[in-house]
């Protein structure tokens, strides 16, 4: 394929998926968890995936990143491209899943995500170390990344193990590790659900400023609608594995949204609601929206 054959508009496309579907292999056979999801993101664009627990957000994210092993789940897709290149989703013969090149992912719990028995230096080396790169260069780059995520005294941090860091520092190290391979897409699965609001906003600011710097598209998975509205350009509303809405974040409140989306928005507590006896819940909101 010649370079000219590539459509021009794909030049700054970070990721595109079409007719994406995931089904888990269980003892009762294939159980669909996500069906018919399509979306595309440009570089530096931000997408929020929102929906209640069990709606398939994590499943979608893991499948996009290539983290679902063949024995666990069956992933079907029409088209999937990362940074303009088609993703090779042929099943891996290994027990360790094969990552989709260019897609990084961070998780809620940095403590369990980082390797507990390896030093931070070792963990950077495992991502940055490639054939022909000298150790001193890797070290310099690691230090640069640790500084970039706002951790003081990087030389010291390199020598430490994850359990010797504070929770906030671990979160930052995880972000640095996920970003230092300069991915086209970063997926953050409820990155801040365990943090208090101040720290969580600071972490989001950090992720997004790094993403802008590297031109990385960000997919934020969250059930925090406020966070999604503050930090993302577009919103994908998932319910029961199906897309309810895919719209720009600003227009999510407009009237033509699906009943489910409106119900979800109703559940966001507003300050003026706090004197009400009952706060809206999803079930009641769905009933109301459907009627």
């Amino acid at each position: 394929m010649s370079r000219l054959a590539k459509p021009l508009e794909r030049a700054d496309e970070a990721i595109a998926v079409e007719r994406f579907a995931v089904a888990y292999r269980t003892e009762f056979g294939l159980v669909p968890a996500v069906s018919n999801v399509s979306f595309a993101l440009k570089r530096s664009e931000r997408l929020a995936v929102v929906g209640e627990s069990g709606s398939g957000k994590t499943t979608l994210a893991m499948a996009i990143a290539g983290l679902l092993p063949h024995e666990t789940a069956q992933v079907d897709y029409g088209v999937a491209r990362v940074a303009g290149r088609p993703v090779d989703m042929s099943a891996s013969r290994s027990v360790i899943p094969v990552r989709h090149e260019g897609v990084s992912m961070i998780f809620q719990d940095a403590m369990t995500s980082l390797d507990p028995v390896a030093t931070i230096a070792h963990q950077f080396r495992s991502v940055l170390g490639k054939r022909g790169v000298r150790r001193s260069e890797i070290r310099a780059e690691s230090i640069e990344w640790i500084e970039k995520v706002g951790i003081p005294n990087p030389e010291r941090v390199l020598k430490l193990h994850p359990y010797e860091l504070s929770g906030g520092m671990r979160q930052r190290v995880m972000i640095a590790l996920a970003m230092c391979s300069k991915p086209a897409v970063l997926i953050a699965d409820e990155p801040t659900s365990a943090l208090d609001i101040v720290v969580s906003r600071r972490i989001m600011d950090l992720v997004l400023s790094l993403a802008v710097e590297l031109g990385t598209a960000v997919i934020v998975i969250t059930h925090d609608i406020d966070l999604a509205r503050k930090y993302t350009d577009r919103m994908l509303v998932l319910y029961n594995g199906e897309v309810q809405d895919l719209c720009s974040t600003d227009s999510v409140t407009s009237a033509e949204r699906s009943p489910y989306t409106r119900a979800l928005l109703d559940c966001v507590p507003r300050l003026q609601d706090y004197d009400k006896e009952f706060l809206p819940t999803l079930a009641r909101s769905i009933e109301r929206a459907a009627s």
Binding site: A65, G66, L67, S94, I96, P97, V98, R99, E101, V103, S104, M105, I106, F107, D109, T112, S113, L114, D115, P116, S126, V127, M174, L177, A178, S181, P183, I187
Partner: peptide
């Protein structure tokens, strides 16, 4: 373990 999953997701060689 999440550790293994994160290593895959961060692009650590197999």
């Amino acid at each position: 373990q999440p550790t293994t999953r994160f290593q895959v997701a961060a692009g650590v060689p197999r």
